[in-house]
Every structure is written in structure tokens, then in C-alpha cells.
């Protein structure tokens, strides 16, 4: 290797700035993966990101490309509006589980079903993070949150929403996958899925979503290491990793 050659650097699609995310939170890893994918695909200058309401609301400070902030849950509708009038742009939403799986269910289901040619990165950490750890639609049965103080009682609170499984049923979806970032092997697999989700859009194949199981050590009341372990042992069994829908045209992508 020639002396002085740079082999690892911050992606151009990420700003050189510290984030507000808590120690142990995996948003940072997911941001980085998006940044790397956008750099590798050479699309930073045509990308428009949609920031959600929730912990990632300030994502526009961390991404180094055009961004719009959406109202709670409405990111897929905002993305639809942009993509329909500016199909030359690459448009993606970055949404948490409160945003996408509670208040934004109508928008995400219909964007998927329309086969809207957008990319969605869905971060599922089983809790409303920004507001201090209330029950999310994805909170596990029995999981203690600030609004389920004795644990989520499915008889009262219903069952955790399996977003990847639900959206895989929509005819319009082209690529639906679930990944996590708790271990290096998972991070690599997650990056590949995010890249596929962007390539799906670039090829004009329709709606693509990657659900990423993520930690919230602060609101789970755990150390970062405990949170990673808890996710692996509790969330993955309920939310199995894998590809939930991959249409043939996506499989054939280079």
C-alpha cells in the first residue's frame, strides 16, 4: 500500500459533527451506513432525505445533503410529493417506530402499496425514544416502559407491530428486509440491504424498506453492552432478521 493512502474516512455524505445520540444508541451506525452507501453509489448530490419526528429529527445536521423535516409519521407522503415532481432525485425517509409504525401507518402502507419509488430506513428500537421511553407499537410483550410500568400487557395494549412482515404483503413493495447492527457481521449485512434499497430506487423498481433493529440503552435502562445483548436475545426472536420480499428484478440487480 502506498504511504499516506487514505483507506478509511468519514463519508462525504456525513457532516463532521458530533451527534446528540446517547452512548450506546445505534442511530450513529445506521447514519454511517447510509452515508457510506450514498457515497459508494455516487448519489450525494441528487439525494433528498426526509427527517422524521423522534430521536432522528436532527438528522439533517448529520447528513451532508438536502433534507426536509416531516411532521410525525408523514415522511412517506412528503417523500412521495418530492419524488413525483422530481423523479431525478433519490428520495429516502429515515423513520423510527413511533413515527412509522404508530402515527404514520397509513402513509407507510399506502406508499408501499403504490410502489412509490422511494427508499425507507425504518429504525425499530421498541420504544418512543425522544419523549422519554413510552410504549411504541413495537414494544415487546412484557417490556417495561414509562407508559407500561408493569410491562406491556397484550390484552390491554395489543401486540407488537411487525412492520417488515406487514409491508411485505403489499403488492407494490419491491424490497422489504429486516436487519440489525448489534454485531459486525450484522452491520455488514445491514449495509448491503440499505444499498440494495437505494439501488432498487435507482433502477426504478419501486418501494424499498429496510427495518433496522436498534438499541435505546437510555430508555431501556441498560448499559450499551447490555442493550446490544438484550436486543439480540429478545428482539431478534420476535422480529426475525431476513429478507421479507425481494422481487425478481431486485434479485437481478448487479
Amino acid at each position: 500500500m502506498p504511504e499516506g493512502e487514505v483507506v478509511f474516512a468519514r463519508p462525504a455524505a456525513l457532516e463532521d459533527t458530533p451527534t446528540h445520540y446517547c452512548p450506546g444508541c445505534t442511530h450513529g451506525i445506521i447514519h454511517r451506513l447510509i452515508g457510506e452507501v450514498i457515497d459508494e453509489l455516487g448519489i450525494r448530490e441528487i439525494t433528498v432525505g426526509i427527517a422524521p419526528v423522534g430521536c432522528a429529527v436532527l438528522a439533517y445536521h448529520y447528513f451532508n445533503f438536502d433534507t426536509v423535516e416531516a411532521a410525525h409519521g408523514r415522511a412517506p407522503a412528503v417523500a412521495t410529493g418530492i419524488k413525483r415532481v422530481s423523479p431525478e432525485n433519490v428520495v429516502f425517509t429515515y423513520q423510527g417506530d413511533g413515527d412509522l409504525a404508530a402515527i404514520g401507518t397509513a402513509e407507510i402502507v399506502h406508499a408501499a402499496n403504490r410502489g412509490e419509488n422511494i427508499t425507507v430506513v425504518f429504525v425499530n428500537n421498541a420504544v418512543f425514544g425522544m419523549t422519554g421511553g413510552q410504549m411504541a407499537p413495537t414494544t415487546l410483550p412484557g417490556q417495561v416502559t414509562t407508559s407500561t410500568p408493569t410491562g406491556r400487557d397484550v390484552k390491554v395494549d395489543g401486540y407488537p407491530v411487525k412492520v417488515a412482515e406487514i409491508l411485505a404483503q403489499t403488492t407494490g413493495a419491491a424490497y422489504i428486509a429486516r436487519r440489525t447492527v448489534t454485531q459486525p457481521k450484522y452491520v455488514r449485512s445491514c449495509k448491503k440491504a440499505i444499498k440494495t434499497a437505494f439501488k432498487t430506487q435507482l433502477a426504478g423498481l419501486g418501494f424499498a424498506l429496510v427495518e433496522v433493529l436498534s438499541t435505546c440503552s437510555t430508555n431501556w435502562g441498560m448499559s450499551p453492552m447490555e442493550a446490544l445483548r438484550w436486543l439480540d436475545e429478545n428482539m431478534i426472536p420476535y422480529y426475525p432478521l431476513g429478507d421479507y420480499k425481494v422481487i425478481d428484478e431486485v434479485k437481478a440487480l448487479p
Binding site: 411532521a71 412521495t80 418530492i82
Partner: peptide, 26 residues
């Protein structure tokens, strides 16, 4: 030009917001 029958009034106005953010008349 773009026409979408949204899934709701809420979705429709947010699609307008997206198109307006993209610099287009919506």
C-alpha cells in the same frame, strides 16, 4: 405532471409539502 389521489387529506397535504419543498408549484 404529477397527480396522486392520496390515502387521506393528511397524506395529500404532506405530498403538497414535499412537492413545494422540491421547488415546484403544488
Amino acid at each position: 405532471r404529477a397527480f396522486v389521489q392520496g390515502e387521506s387529506e393528511i397524506a395529500s397535504i404532506n405530498m403538497v409539502l414535499g412537492a413545494a419543498a422540491a421547488g415546484k408549484r403544488a
